[in-house]
């Protein structure tokens, strides 16, 4: 029980100090004469946020600089970037990242649309959706352990056990070490192991897509669908030609949000892909691998910059789309 109190004590003290400092500053600001009073009050409101944001801006700029340094912090010019784009292993990393963005986003969104469509007004809809949404709350580390019971080559591996039910002699598969897909091993094709790790992330992300798209679906005006039906559309046509275009903005939001999350994923690859071995690495994982286990901060920083370049346009598409949706109300 002592643990509880010391935990909560620390929490309460921390927050109390924060509130007290802010309150005191605001009080001081209120003592100033105009026009300084208003400016000082504004500063108290926005100041802490800006300080924390600086904790992001300065490191981001520093990181940019580090990306031009080598392993020993000596100036290396564009060396790190050159190394990334000329090394065959890294081509695999870039291709993997691209596949992650396309496959995980695409499949998660399609599952989201499917569930949202068919579950709508179905008996037990809330339960079905809660079950699909549940993995969202689970950590990557937990997910890694959970899925080990599916992919493991041991007796308790679900997938291998199911294969054994097939007729004939089935050899035990080491799924997470299989870099081939349908017998193809290429730098441009993700391995079976990568695809199976993607399944885990789809398992986590599909719930998000389902919930958001489902809510959008319920906001489609009924007369729109009724009008389409009176015009002779079938259920299918009404859904694909009228309902889907109507919630297009929401689907873009879902897709961009999933892409951004996916591009930054690294921990699942650390746990399930053994840190990116057997050709499972992605950009975010490579960034971590180089910066920490390999202790090559310059190369890690260069990966981070590339990740930034990849994510930037998607974030702007997302922000613009959201603004358009708000204004379109």
């Amino acid at each position: 029980m002592g643990d509880i109190f010391s935990s909560l004590g620390l929490v309460v003290v921390g927050i109390a100090i924060f509130v007290a400092v802010l309150g005191a500053l605001y009080w001081l600001a209120s003592q100033l004469p105009e026009p300084w009073r208003e400016r000082a009050r504004t500063a108290v409101f926005i100041g802490p946020g800006i300080i924390l944001l600086l904790g992001l801006v300065i490191p981001a700029l520093l990181n940019f600089r580090y990306s031009f340094l080598d392993r020993d912090d000596e100036w290396y010019g564009f060396g790190n970037y050159r190394d990334i784009f000329t090394n065959d292993n890294n081509i695999k990393v870039l291709a993997n990242t691209l596949w992650w963005g396309i496959l995980v986003t695409g499949v998660s969104t399609i599952i989201g649309i499917t569930i949202a469509r068919f579950a709508d007004r179905m008996r037990g809809e809330p339960i079905a959706k809660a079950l699909i949404f549940l993995p969202t709350a689970i950590s990557m580390v937990g997910a890694g352990i959970i899925w080990n019971f599916v992919y493991s080559p041991k007796e308790y591996g679900l997938l291998n056990s199911m294969l054994r039910l097939l007729p004939g002699e089935q050899e035990t598969k080491f799924f997470l070490q299989d870099p081939k897909l349908f017998g193809i091993q290429s730098n441009y094709v993700p391995g079976l192991n990568t695809v199976l790790i993607m399944v885990v992330i789809i398992w986590i992300q599909a719930g998000f897509a389902t919930v958001v798209i489902s809510a959008a679906l319920k906001g489609v005006p009924d007369d729109l669908v009724e009008a389409a039906k009176i015009d002779g559309a079938t259920d299918r046509q009404a859904f694909y030609k009228v309902v889907l275009p109507y919630i297009k903005g929401t689907i873009i939001t879902v897709a961009t949000t999933v892409v951004i999350a996916v591009l930054k994923i690294f921990d699942i690859i650390q746990t399930m892909g053994k840190g990116g071995s057997f050709g499972t690495s992605t950009m975010a994982n490579e960034m971590y691998e180089q910066a920490f286990p390999q202790d090559n901060e310059g190369l890690g920083a260069a990966w981070a910059v590339l990740l930034f370049v990849a994510v930037a346009p998607i974030v702007f598409v997302n922000a613009r789309n959201q603004r358009a949706m708000r204004e379109g109300r």
């Binding site: 944001l53 981001a60 975010a284 920083a301």
Partner: peptide
């Protein structure tokens, strides 16, 4: 700033 990946700021 939402663009900046967490990973980019870790080392600095």
């Amino acid at each position: 700033l939402m663009v900046v990946p967490l990973q980019m700021c870790l080392i600095p």
